[in-house]
């Protein structure tokens, strides 16, 4: 039996705005097992990043976690101080150009992070920093180099070293390859995956790239308008998507082969509704080709822990 590391119970993140309270994350429940890589996919504004920020405690006012619980190793994480969270959970940010302080050497930043969380001397921290750099394939002698001396891919590897420096149990990677060239994306992802597997570290991988997801994650969670649409094993979800939204996402992923050459790419009609104008019932119903009356009036529950869709309920 796999052990649960992180559990979100009915997580809700709200933003107070001029037009009322917006739910960026709406009643989200999911679990992350030990050593597992969970991918979260969804369009821009689906609440992926907000979920990550909520777990790690980086939601800025006017936003706040208004409801729900975050359990981490059988403890209420959301009641822990920031420093404890930072030790157990770390983050790989989207843009390696801005996630390293341009005026401080990479070693300096690694040492600062290590010293903030571990009881080690400065010299030990420095040694650890060098080991960390070596692990991500960067010459440890470059510990005194500034971020501008590294390429984008190398910088992202430094960021990975930084994220793993304190031996966290969970790494949240928020679109770690979006800012990188396609040619180094795979390299960075493989590295992240390899290092986390070696350590038994769990990963929440946030992305909107289905290809990245298929290649890297063990399980996939699909989010739509702040809600969980579908969750399951990667293979299952990709080969047999249950929620019409996931089906649409799959159909609109371009594939490069002779058969699809010249044919038009599928697109899901319409756009994701604004959070201040969500339709009643299922949030996806205006764009869903299979929507029926019930979808427009009441919100579908999670059916057999897989998809939140009335169609699945009807089928069973």
């Amino acid at each position: 039996m796999t052990e649960t590391l992180l559990e979100l119970k009915g997580l809700e993140v709200t933003f107070k705005t001029r037009r009322g309270v917006l739910k960026a994350v709406d009643d989200l429940s999911l679990t992350v097992n030990k050593g597992e890589i969970l991918g979260i996919v969804g369009e821009s504004g689906a609440g992926k990043s907000m979920t990550g920020a909520a777990i790690i405690g980086l939601i800025d006012p006017p936003g706040r976690v208004s409801k729900g619980e975050i359990w981490f190793e059988q403890e209420r994480m959301d009641e822990h101080p920031q420093q404890l969270r930072g030790k157990q959970i770390s983050m790989v940010f989207q843009d390696p150009l801005t996630s390293l302080n341009p005026l401080r050497t990479v070693g300096d930043q690694l040492v600062e992070t290590i010293l903030a969380h571990m009881y080690v001397t400065k010299a030990q921290a420095r040694q650890r920093a060098q080991d960390g750099l070596a692990e991500v394939g960067i010459d440890p002698d470059r510990i005194n180099a500034y971020p501008h001396a590294f390429s984008g891919g190398m910088r992202q590897r430094v960021v990975i070293a930084l994220a793993l420096a304190t031996e966290p149990k969970l790494v949240i990677a928020d679109e770690p390859t979006t800012a990188l060239d396609v040619s180094v994306q795979a390299q960075v992802l493989d590295l992240l995956k390899k290092l986390c597997r070696e350590r038994g570290t769990s990963v929440i991988l946030i992305t909107h790239d289905m290809g990245v997801m298929a290649q890297t994650s063990d399980r996939i969670a699909v989010m739509y308008a702040g809600r969980l649409a579908e969750i399951g094993d990667t293979r299952e979800v990709l080969s047999n998507p249950q929620h019409p939204y996931t089906q649409g996402l799959m159909a609109s992923t371009p594939s490069v082969d002779a058969k699809s050459f010249g044919s038009e790419l599928f697109q899901i009609p319409g756009a994701m509704p604004k959070l201040d104008a969500l339709p009643p019932g299922c949030a996806f119903n205006p764009r869903c080709s299979q929507a029926h009356e019930r979808c427009r009036t009441s919100r579908p529950p999670m059916v057999s822990g897989r998809a939140a869709c009335w169609l699945m309920e009807d089928a069973s």
């Binding site: 920031q82 969270r85 983050m91 940010f93 401080r104 600062e112 903030a116």
Partner: peptide
């Protein structure tokens, strides 16, 4: 707004440490 500030917050540095050690030089 840059991510290195978020990273600094993440490791639990307080406001003054972030302002003086990370933002000020920039």
């Amino acid at each position: 707004e840059k991510e290195y500030v978020a990273a600094a917050r993440l490791i639990g540095l307080n406001r003054w440490q972030i302002m003086l050690r990370h933002i000020l030089p920039n």
